[in-house]
Amino acid sequence: MPVTTIAGRDIHVDDEGFLTAYEEWDPELARSLAGRIGIELTDAHWKALTFLREDYAAQGETATLRRVSVVGGIPTKELFTLFPKKPAKKMAYVAGLPKPHGCV
């Protein structure tokens, strides 16, 4: 499993760069992760990230876009604005989680 340096810290990631250790993530790291993919985090981003983190802890898997919108209460359209083009994967990356595996 590769290790990379993010914000001066050694972080475990998978071959694509998604974080693999839930506990290595914290809000400060999230800001660095977001910066690496050109996103500046606002309160609206944090609402999505907080849902993803909590949902992962409860469910053991990363929420799909549909789950973030239906269960997390953030409209799909807004997610595409906050995390352009590939919202589900970008959110998972910034939240320090594996990319979602669900189809819908």
Partner: peptide, 8 residues
């Protein structure tokens, strides 16, 4: 493996 810069 140490990878200096790995971004998806």
């Amino acid at each position: 493996d140490f990878v200096p810069e790995l971004v998806p």
